[in-house]
């Protein structure tokens, strides 16, 4: 089971913690399996990233389904812009996704670019 792979969890967690420390706009983050299991997380007191992570796996799967319906290739990322913040979900590979959250509504570009960069880094590190 992917969430019991200690090496993968350690590597993923190291990268997630680096992401959060290098980009202080990111207040919460998680890596989840495609079927909704938490691999690692960074959370504030505001949310349970285990629950949000599982929701993220549902949402990106639904986005993949919609993308396939539209015949637009693969879903690259999912951006959820909200009144009080932004969440981004990106596939790391076919089994994992990363979710990041900021409450700075003007930082979509930074959030997206940082999350993409680390999704690639994590993919390379665990392959």
């Amino acid at each position: 089971m992917i969430t019991e792979d200690k090496v993968l969890k350690r590597v993923a967690n190291e990268h997630l913690q680096n992401l959060v420390s290098n980009f202080n706009i990111i207040e919460e983050a998680a890596i989840v399996s495609s079927d909704g299991y938490l691999v690692c997380k960074y959370e504030s007191k505001v949310s349970s990233m285990e629950r949000v992570g599982t929701m993220g796996s549902s949402m990106i799967s639904l986005a993949d389904t919609m993308t396939a319906e539209l015949k637009m290739g693969k879903c690259v990322n999912l951006v959820i812009e909200n009144e009080l913040g932004i969440a981004v979900i990106i596939h790391i590979n076919s089994k994992l996704s990363i979710i990041t959250v900021t409450r700075e509504t003007s930082q979509l570009g930074m959030l997206l670019s940082a999350t993409k960069k680390y999704a690639v880094k994590i993919k390379q590190a665990i392959t």
């Binding site: 089971m1 495609s34 079927d35 799967s61 389904t65 076919s94 089994k95």
Partner: peptide, 11 residues
């Protein structure tokens, strides 16, 4: 059918 099926991590 619109479905959202993923490979299970567990057995």
């Amino acid at each position: 059918v619109i479905s959202t099926e993923e490979k299970p991590s567990d057995d």
